[in-house]
Design a protein around this nucleic acid. Structure first.
Lengths: 354, 354
DNA sequence: CTGTTAGCGCATTCAG
DNA sequence: CTGAATGCGCTAACAG
């Protein structure tokens, strides 16, 4: 078969235990012995058997990262950042602490989220990072808390990134001020003079959707427009629902002067729909996104949005997962969402005000 | 500690072997016994120990996916597609064949590619999928072939996706007709009447870069412009090099009427640079991308590019990796790259022709 | 169809 | 500082 520890030991004229010690570098080993072992490893092209050592040591060097869909830039950037803290190049301690990230696409499905968690528990993952908003359903929340508790009981570190702390489990959390971001976006539009706003919300019953909507309503309330602008349509976080949603909003209120999209991707769909309807951005209708993904600045006109520090947050989550950073007080770190006012928003045109 | 197979066996009043059999579903087990075992599993909340079974069975259910950077949409889409063929929801055979994808960011570095391959060998990965173009350096090519041979010798399936077959190793390959795509793009511009083209190539010494450049030159040659248009600048596959590269091309040849970018992301940078220079697209300068990533159609003007069927190719690679699909004849499947003529290209304006 | 018997390759006691 | 012995939890023959 394959070359094993014993083969290396024989070649180096030492015991298997010694080889193990050299390789893991936890125990003192004589310099001479050490180099002899290392040479044998080279010569035999020995590669540790991960499963075997995971079994013996009762812990693997796999880290699970749950995302809705890795093809969505939001999650890709987050996952990439988490990644950046492990594996070759990250080098948290000087070499052999190589962790590997298992990326799991849940597709936003609660069941799959649970299934993946079980799969990761089966792998005896060293840590698990759950990214993005989560479904707000008591049943699921409880099931999730239970699963996570089992994981932490089994020694797996659990970190939440991009979602609020989970009731029933004290996982370390890195989250975004979605409420504040949405509020700033709405205030920005109101200050430009907009009064008839359309809001394209994300999928119902998700934390992210709710928080952003709450921020929006808060701003509206402060401006004394609480009751008025309940023009809201829910949809998925994709371009198509942006397109369809924009048309639906216009159907309901043709005199709309601004549309707030659930995120940048949705905003792109909104822009496409408006263009197809012959409406100019921002002269006829202002549009805002959310997240400030890389493409936002290249949209035409450049998208006014709110910047989420995804890379920072992801990296932070990665370090917390690997226990390389002291946890924030209270276990929760919240990142601010800055307004990026660009060309897709402007004062409403008097003509459309009618 | 944690509950084990033996615990379940005791609870169900059977032997550990039987439990293992019902869980893996490979051997015939009496219906009655089966359900008793399953019940015990439920009651004890038993979760298989992955490392232990991997050790005993000498194979894990981990699949490595090497990408340059998962934050780059090109790789994200590819990886997502590979993913889609495994894990919950893919269900290739009816349930428990759950594979998990380990995504490895090589950052385009040959050394890291090798390191990750070793790490995957250590995990006894069931398969490895290498995506994207590769560095063309004899030393690296050989080192890579050696590593891959070790992997296949150890029983790991190796699939290449988005790069040409590797000399020295007969891995299954799913690749794109980069040459043809670049040729079609160039022909498109030539047929519109362009004669002064600028080419923004990817990083030097990479297969993708070379193939696209070759296609470009082939088209130029056929048009009898071989010697003429050697206006080429190399750069990374990112927006910034698109921006800088466009400025550099314009410096070298201010009368340029078209720029072919290494890919869509680079094209976005080119567009930004042109706009900043007060040049209109496509009236003053036509621009083309490559890949047809989701955002290409939302650029303004919509980007003329070449469509790579990333999702199809990724899924195919995933199935091949899992041995769920019969390999193509010769072990190599090549996907065609279709021209997507959109608004960023048009005949050159007579005024600029001077 | 089911139980028994051996390891899989390594990390750790515990002695020396 | 090093070696010998033990077991991690599971699968895979081999019998029955």
């Amino acid at each position: 078969m394959s070359v094993t520890l014993a083969d290396v030991a024989a070649r180096a004229g030492v015991s298997a235990a010694t080889v193990s010690r050299v390789l893991n570098g936890n125990y003192p080993v004589a310099g001479e012995t050490r180099s002899r072992v290392l040479r044998a490893v080279e010569e035999l092209e020995y590669v540790v058997n991960g499963p075997a050592s995971a079994l013996a040591a009762a812990t693997s060097d796999l880290v699970g990262v749950l995302v809705n869909d890795i093809a969505d830039p939001f999650f890709a950037v987050l996952a990439s950042a988490v990644q950046s803290e492990m594996g070759p190049g990250a080098d948290g301690a000087g070499g052999s602490g190589q962790k590997m990230a298992i990326i799991c696409n849940t597709g936003g499905s609660p069941e799959r989220e649970l299934t993946y968690l079980t799969l990761l528990q089966r792998q005896r993952a060293a840590a698990v990072v759950l990214t993005g908003g989560t479904v707000e359903d008591p049943t699921h929340t409880e099931a999730l808390a239970t699963r996570l508790r089992r994981l932490s009981d089994a020694g797996t570190r659990v970190v939440l990134c991009g979602r609020p702390p989970l009731p029933g489990h004290d996982a370390l959390t890195v989250t975004f001020d979605n409420r504040g971001g949405a509020r700033r976006l709405t205030e920005h539009l109101l200050s430009l003079g907009h009064r008839r706003l359309g809001y394209l919300a994300g999928p119902t019953a998700r934390t992210t959707t709710r928080h952003r909507l709450e921020g929006h309503h808060a701003a509206l309330g402060e401006a004394g427009l609480a009751g008025e602008a309940t023009l809201t349509v829910h949809g998925a976080y994709d371009r198509a629902s942006g397109y369809d949603g924009a048309l639906e909003l216009l159907r309901r209120e043709p005199r709309l002067t601004a549309i707030l999209a659930a995120n940048d991707t949705v905003a792109l769909g909104v822009c496409a729909a408006l263009r197809d309807r012959g409406l100019r951005i921002p002269q006829d209708v202002s549009v805002t996104g959310f997240d400030d993904l890389p493409f936002a600045v290249d949209a035409t006109p450049a998208l006014t949005t709110v910047r989420l520090p995804l890379a920072d947050a992801g990296a932070r989550a990665g370090r917390l997962a690997l226990d390389r950073e002291t946890p924030p007080a209270g276990g929760v770190a919240t990142y601010h969402a800055d307004l990026m006012a660009r060309a897709s928003t402007a004062p409403p045109s008097p003509s459309r005000a009618r």
